[in-house]
Design a protein around this nucleic acid. Structure first.
Lengths: 238, 238
DNA sequence: CTAAATATAACGAACGTTCGTTTTTTGCTT
DNA sequence: AAGCAAAAAACGAACGTTCGTTATATTTAG
């Protein structure tokens, strides 16, 4: 385990991004369009709806999921569904917007960490831990981005570039300080993100091999640090 | 440019995987179900159909693409479409199967290359070059795999693991020979594939930065070789 | 009793698919 | 060459189904 870093379970407890909390946050953020007044009822049903929606969407795609399927899978009637969103597209955007909250968590976790090498490790770990906790949300957000409206698509692209910029800045600062060697920071950030995304896009592969998220985090960190010329080379079990 | 490796343009000319050749191969492989007898007619229309199908699917998703859209985009009538495939699902499987031909090209390109380091470089370059030439096919294959039937999904997973095994074997042999350091070969293969996939999944990002496929190939090779402990460390323009 | 929440059933639009018809191409005869 | 019948290919309206959506009725809880 890395020095001074939280383990995955510690991290999970700390951020408390359970389905219930996500749905409560989603409810409070969409009180205008959700017709249900009583919070406990609304949150409970939103959990059923989002659970079903993420399951069905991630299995067959959002547009291939019919609202009748969503109705029977969630246990709510068609009419009830429409008290929680005003259209199928509205549901899509609700999920997409709620998925974006993680960026705040990511930046928050980096606050106060100034050393570039520590920041890099922290950013990789946090990103992986978040995607592990909210895998269905991440997967949905990635795969269904094409269904968004043009303007929401722009926002999604900007968010993607913003996350990447976060890594670019870390690499650049490390280069300025002299701890990272000179290289194309944008490419480093790009492939780092690619490796992070693989964790939730191809989750079944790592699950089958019983690779833990902590192990994967360490590995990705090693690869990136290795390229940046600051990794501690040492023993690894094959 | 790497010693003895073909440039991208040389590679493109050599493999000759133009839309027309892909469609001719697709026609010959599906002669049983395609009702059109004359090859030139069939290949010409298949080009229109697949061009439209890949464009529309990759923009909004296969299941969100209606056959009426496909009809107007391809310039063929609804009835004409159904002389080239027997159902929408059939079209999906045709595209998916045709996308699989690239694996043969990949393995063919590795034949005769025995040195692990050279094999690794060749595998990375070839995979990237292929995905550059056939980007719409790769993208489609990745994004629409979930729409396949259960058994075709199994085949897709096996193909994914087979490609990965190809990289695993290269790494393992390099370790046996002693040119690569000891580490988890499966993880190395996994993240290598993740980086390769990013090239066609996030193509717009690299296009915007005017990153060439040759540059990206070199970069990925450097990252992987760097981790495996055999890369030549040196100058890089930031 | 009342208001909030849910269930039911129906609507028009759009879907994948089919099929009788028309248009185009081919091969043969003059 | 020209004409023509047969084969091949393309067409597009229409079918039954399913979609997202909504209006109305029923149930539940304070």
């Amino acid at each position: 385990m890395a020095k001074g870093e939280l383990s995955f379970e510690e991290f999970r407890r700390m951020v408390s991004l359970s389905m219930e909390n996500m749905c409560r946050d989603l409810y409070l953020g969409n009180r205008a369009s959700i017709k249900i007044k009583k919070e406990p009822v609304a949150v409970g049903n939103l959990m059923k709806i989002l659970d079903a929606a993420l399951t069905l969407s991630n299995k067959k795609g959002f547009s291939a999921m019919s609202l009748r399927e969503l109705s029977s899978q969630s246990g709510l009637s068609m009419g009830a569904l429409y008290t929680y969103f005003s259209s199928k597209e509205d549901l899509l955007h609700m999920i997409q917007r709620e998925s974006a909250v993680v960026f705040d968590v990511l930046t928050a976790q980096l606050e106060g960490v100034r050393d570039p090498q520590a920041r890099l490790r922290r950013a990789i770990r946090t990103h992986l831990f978040l995607s592990e906790i909210l895998r269905p949300w991440f997967y949905f957000s990635y795969m269904e981005a094409k269904n968004l409206s043009k303007q929401e698509q722009k926002k999604a692209i900007e968010a993607e570039l913003l996350t990447e910029k976060l890594f670019v800045d870390i690499v650049r600062e490390g280069q300025d300080v002299g701890v990272f060697r000179d290289c194309d920071a944008e490419l480093v950030a790009a492939v780092t993100k690619a490796m992070l995304q693989d964790w939730y896009l191809k989750r079944w592969k790592y699950a089958r091999r019983k690779t833990t998220v902590e192990r994967y985090a360490e590995f990705v960190t090693d690869v990136v640090e290795g390229y940046l010329g600051c990794g501690r080379r040492g023993e690894k079990k094959s």
